[in-house]
Design a binder for these strands. Structure first.
Lengths: 208, 208
DNA sequence: AAACTATACGAACGGTCGTATTATTAGTTC
DNA sequence: GAACTAATAATACGACCGTTCGTATAGTTT
C-alpha cells in the first residue's frame, strides 16, 4: 500500500479520505445509513469511482470498521499502554476511554457501541468482526487488571471487574449522546474509582 | 379505540397485529430497517392499507416504540411492582430485567437498547421520545432504590447505584446478543448482588 | 513512443424506499 | 336493501439504493 518514499499512491489517498468520512457518518447513522451515494456526494467524487475501491457494500463496511478500530486504538489503547502495567494502566484505560467518548473522536459517540448494537442481531462478516473486536477489547481490559493483580496492587476477579468497568463506559456514552449531557461521565468515573478503590491492596499508591 | 363490549374494531385488530410484528422486526433490524413494504409483505396485507393506519414512517416508528414500551412495562415493571417497596423490589427489578433480555421477549434482545443507540445521535420526535423513555426508566430504578433507602434497608446514593445497575443490564444484553452466549447475565447478576450486598444495612433480610 | 495499469468518471440497471391518489370492499345504520 | 362510513387494496410516483458497464485520463513500465 505504501510507497517506499512514504507518499501514498493516488488511490490510497482517496481510500483514506473515504474511510475518514465513513467512520464519522457511521458513528451517527450506522453502517447501513452509510450509503455509497451519500458518501460520494459529500466527498465530491463519483459513486462508481468510490465503489470501485471496495467492490461491495459489505467490504466498505468492513473497511470502515477496521479504520475505526485504528482510530480507537490510537486514542484509547496506545495512550494507556504508555503507562506501566498495573493499577495505573487500568486507571488510564478508563480515563482515556471516557475522554475518547466525551471528546467525540467520532461525532456520534463511541463508534463501536453504535455499530455493535446495529449488527448485534444480524449475521454476516460485519457482525463477526464486531464480535471479535468486542472480545478483543474485553480481553484487553481483563489483561490490564490481571497485571495489576499479579503485581499485588489489586485484589479482584479480573473478568468480573472488566465487565463492570466496561459497563460503566458504555452506559456513560449512551446517556451522554441520548441526553446531550455530560453527567454520565462523572457517574462512570466515580463508579470506576469506587470499584478500583474497593479492590486496591492497602499500601498501593493510587493514581487518581 | 376499544368498543364497550371489549371486541376490537376491525382497524384496531390490524393495527395491533402490525405493531406486534413491528417491534420484533425493529428489535433485530432497527426502526429504519423496519420498512413498510417488508412489514406488509410479512403480514400478507397491502402496503397502502398498512400505511393508511399511520400516515407516515415516523408515526409508525413512534407507534412501534409506544407498543414496545407497553410490552416492556408488562414484562419488567409490573412484576417488580408486585413486590413491596424496598430492597426486594430493587432486586426484583434486576431479576426481571435480566429475564426479559435473556428470554428474548424481543427477538433482538432489549428493544430499547437497540433503537436508543440507533437514534442516539439523530434528532427528531423518535429521538426525543426514546430519551424520555430512558429518563423515565432511570428514574424508576432510582425511585425503587430511594424507597429502600428510606426504609433503612440500603445505604447508598440512589442515582449512582441506579447508574451502576442499569449499566450491568445493558452490558449483559449486548454481550449476550453479540456473542450468543449467556455468561454476561451471570456476571450482571453477580455485580448487581455485590453492589446491593455492599449497600445493605446490617440486619436487613436479603432477597437472594 | 508504445504498452500497460491504476484510478476515476457518467450513465444506466433492477429494486426498494416512503408517500399520494384513486378505487374497492366490508360493516354499520337507517 | 340503500346510504354512508371505515378499512383495505390497487396503482403510480419520484428518489435513492447497491451494482455493473463502458470509457476516459493519468502514471508507470518497457
Amino acid at each position: 500500500m505504501e510507497k517506499v518514499d512514504g507518499r501514498l499512491a493516488r488511490g490510497d489517498q482517496t481510500r483514506r479520505a473515504v474511510l475518514r468520512r465513513a467512520v464519522d457518518i457511521a458513528s451517527v447513522d450506522g453502517l447501513e445509513g452509510l450509503s455509497i451515494g451519500r458518501l460520494a456526494t459529500e466527498l465530491g467524487i463519483s459513486k462508481s469511482g468510490l465503489f470501485a475501491h471496495f467492490g461491495s457494500k459489505e467490504e466498505l463496511q468492513l473497511a470502515t470498521v477496521r479504520a475505526a478500530r485504528r482510530i480507537y486504538a490510537d486514542n484509547v489503547v496506545v495512550p494507556a499502554y504508555e503507562i506501566a502495567p498495573g493499577l495505573g494502566r487500568v486507571w488510564a484505560l478508563s480515563k482515556h476511554w471516557l475522554d475518547y467518548s466525551r471528546s467525540r473522536v467520532f461525532p456520534g459517540g463511541c463508534f463501536f457501541q453504535k455499530v455493535s448494537h446495529e449488527f448485534s442481531a444480524r449475521d454476516g462478516a460485519v457482525h463477526e468482526y464486531l464480535a471479535e473486536v468486542h472480545r478483543e477489547w474485553m480481553d484487553l481490559i481483563e489483561t490490564a487488571i490481571t497485571e495489576a493483580v499479579d503485581r499485588g496492587e489489586l485484589a479482584a476477579d479480573p473478568a468480573q471487574l472488566a465487565f463492570d468497568l466496561n459497563a460503566y463506559y458504555e452506559a456513560a456514552n449512551l446517556a451522554s449522546i441520548l441526553h446531550n449531557d455530560e453527567t454520565g461521565y462523572d457517574r462512570a468515573r466515580r463508579s470506576v474509582q469506587d470499584r478500583l478503590a474497593a479492590a486496591v491492596v492497602p499500601g498501593t499508591p493510587v493514581p487518581w
